[in-house]
Write a protein that binds this DNA or RNA. Structure first.
Lengths: 220, 220, 220, 220
DNA sequence: CATGAATGAGTTTTCATTCAT
DNA sequence: TATGAATGAAAACTCATTCAT
């Protein structure tokens, strides 16, 4: 499913013997089940028993793969952020136009959460994580923001915008996509952004950034 | 605290006698306690006992004011949306410039959730409400969006934008503010939008809407 | 409503002044409300607040009339047993035929509980009463049984049956009426005794008693 | 304890392995504990924690066996009705004399509730069950009445009584036994039917039915 | 390793009763 | 005396986690 190594469990020998492969397959089934289930309900309503059941194993087996439900949540968050990164990353390869790049990156964020409501639910859930899983979740998000910021840096420079704006835009993309992800379906059809709504938003923001008079940097 | 009438309990005669005032004061203490506590933690971690305790009364007394924790949540959501409306409403009175109005309305939304994290938590919590409180919460939010859309209509017309965009912008403001409200504090200082970040975002969006080529309406 | 004196409260001066009359009227309203409400639901589901409300007064006022809900229950039981006695008592005046008398007394019991489901509910509730109200409830029932036994004595003698049978028949009448009272409506129409079912049962029992060979008294 | 299958929990494979047997034993301990406790107090005063404790397990374990206290009540009712049926059923095998059969069936009912006060408490409790457990409880009782009615049919025919009387007699037996079950012990020794009292009642009713002039069927 | 039964802390809600006004 | 707001002791139920088999 992905290249991440086991989350909190003792360090699985890399030995790709039959047993090891089976085990990895089982873990992937758990991950898929976890994502599927958290797409439709808040994380607190996702039961370990349901995840295990849908993955075709017992509750006990779940805990041989993940030390706790929290650990699992942090792991899932990492997985979805990886998937998001895989959509965002390639955009940096063709930076023909600064406005396009910014708009594109934002739009990808907004669309991603629409397609993957589990991402929003997991980010919301992350705030309840404490201890190591909490730190890990935070870490995953920070890394994502950094990655996006790096990606946007040349575009922002071309727009004559300060480089800090990169992280802020990434954060805004995450926050907006995430917020829309549960507000829209919950409020019901007529209150949703139409198919092109997200693109328009992203482009408008990008255009606006490019054409607004530059903010005067505060003198420190 | 506010002019809303009692939520689900029998219809408090308007009699503003001593007892009535005391009761209303007690209810307001509950509301304040509820808002305070839900500012710092997700709604599920707000215990009725804590709310009542902080309001200086017993658990039982809480239930003489609100029929259930869910009812209380829906009521609190109504309260914060009212407060938000009180900040947004007056902006419509001085619509000198379309761009300014749109930017202002958005900025107010973004700032509001920063100052009132409980608003974000309550909106998130609303999704878990079922039955009457759930319907009520949805209703409150829809009404808020309608109000904002009405307010923005002239500005959007001046920008030659379709009127539907009003609701979508309101939704985006809510979603973004809401998302930022818990992502920022949780991710920690360096990852936050600086004081002026929200304004810049709001203005850029407004400017962008005004200067982007108009979306070609799909021919039905 | 009835001639019973106040249940557990200090001894109301017999003075029938205006205030006293009003108070007695209020108490009667409580009694009527209590009977009405306990007709439709088990006693545990009858709320003091509902009784008081239906009687047009506050919960607090209720407790100036009855020391506790238990006291109230015991009192209501006394009231319904009085009413039952008023139907049974006169039958003793025309003891033309022994079989008829026994059958009649039984039939009255069976029919009474059909018309007054609250009687059954109150008897069931009585078992949960403790302390003084419990003793009082038991006392009321015992007195009723004694009364019926006294009434039946001549008839039983004529049938050449032992006098103890009187109390036992009374008990059986109570038990059967009471049991039918909640089984029939709960099981639904087709499982009910038809209108004449109770009479037939009562008469058959009476006839049977008269024509069965006498039980040989156990030699002590 | 009995052959009934699990009540509302997933359908226990018939696998009679060690674990399965242990589990079934645990459930039986719960059932025994439930019956024991409800023999001495009304169902509402039977606490899940007590039942579980007496069965040697935790509250939580109880809920792995029964979905709710209501489900448990309905199940217990089924168990006692089964036990009653096991006493009544065999009587139909030696129908030498109609009067004897009717008297016997009634007497068994009356005695059963004397020995098993929990039966009466559970029947009373059944009226408060709602939803599926409520329907199930009703169903159990109706089936019992049908069974008894079937059993009595030949005897009633021999007595030249209408067949509907079967169900009515069953109902009367249930109601009387049930009523006596809590009235007698509660009223105290002297007010009880002596050991032979129930038999006499049953026989008298049977004799009476056989010798009373037949009710004239109403002309429709 | 896998299983799934058992655990038990934690939370909402009800309602008879009290008592200040 | 009347009111009705406040009290607080219950009690059912959930579910992540453990552990004997």
């Amino acid at each position: 499913m992905d290249e991440r190594t086991a989350p909190d469990r003792a360090g699985e020998p890399a030995a790709p013997d039959a047993a090891g492969l089976k085990r990895r397959a089982a873990r992937d089934r758990l991950v898929r089940a976890g994502l599927k289930l958290s797409a439709g309900r808040p994380w607190a309503r996702v039961k370990v028993a349901d995840v295990a059941g849908r993955a075709g194993m017992s509750k006990g087996a779940f805990f041989t793969h993940f030390a706790s439900k929290d650990t699992f949540a942090a792991y899932l968050l990492g997985v979805v952020l990886d998937q998001l990164a895989q959509r965002v990353g390639p955009m940096g390869l063709s930076p023909e136009d600064a406005e396009d790049l910014v708009a594109g990156v934002l739009a990808v964020h907004l669309r991603f959460f629409q397609l993957r409501p589990e991402a929003a639910n997991l980010i919301i859930a992350a705030r309840e994580l404490s201890g190591r899983p909490g730190r890990r979740a935070r870490q995953s998000l920070r890394e994502h923001l950094d990655m996006v910021a790096r990606l946007l840096r040349p575009a922002l420079a071309a727009m004559d915008q300060p480089p800090e704006l990169g992280r802020q835009l990434a954060l805004a993309g995450l926050a907006t996509g995430c917020g829309l992800a549960w507000l829209e379906p919950w409020l019901g059809g007529e209150t949703a952004l139409p198919g092109t709504g997200r693109e328009r938003l992203a482009r408008a923001l990008s255009v606006g950034l490019n054409r607004t008079e530059r903010p005067r940097r505060p003198v420190p």
